[in-house]
Amino acid sequence: MDVVRNALPYLMDGLKVTLYIFIIALILGFIIGLIVALLRLAPIKPLNWIAKSYINAIRGTPFIVQLFFIYFGLNTIPWISMDKTTAGIVTVAINAGAYFAEIIRAGIQSIDSGQAEAARSLGLTSTQTMRYIVLPQAFRRMLPTFTNQSIISLKDTSLLSIIGIADLTQRGQIQQAATYESFKIWLIVGIIYFIIIYALTLLANFLERRFELR
């Protein structure tokens, strides 16, 4: 137990890094997803095309390749200079954004067209209709899939250790190298991830009940 007790404070600092990157990337990813979903549904062909290309590019390539492209590839462009953490956040956000876009699009399309018709017939603009009528209902409906993708993105952050970000996984590696206690170290790292993700699931369940479609 001494190994674990000694490693724990160090691992907890790693968890802070993981959660910091995750939360910022999740917010950015959601904003990207919302914008891309709206572009994807806009009645303007070139916008649909841009949105579709982005989604296909992200879905059709591995996360690691996206990470290397953004951190090593984009950083060769003279006027771009991202540190590791920024590159990590950008990668997770751009990756999650593509999946969120598809989740939000499906959510919007699942709302009966009569809802928008009723809102428009009252004189609401298309933007107001989206904001007050369609999106609030779509968000409720997509909460379970949204939770799923968030959990995948949280787990994806462990891959950021490859470019040297001192997240939970990276710190696990360092502890393992220092102690040679692979079994205990990776078990405790796994348990920490599990607790966070389980808490996230409970939060999502709570929100689902709270915003139940009436």
Binding site: G114, R120, S121, L122, G123, P136, R140, L213
Partner: peptide, 20 residues
């Protein structure tokens, strides 16, 4: 058209009340 619709109410077969 939004201005026109302000003055023209509509009632639908399926009600289309906002459930939320």
């Amino acid at each position: 058209i939004n201005k026109v619709r302000e003055e023209v109410g509509m009632v639908f077969q399926q009600f289309n009340l906002f459930p939320h």
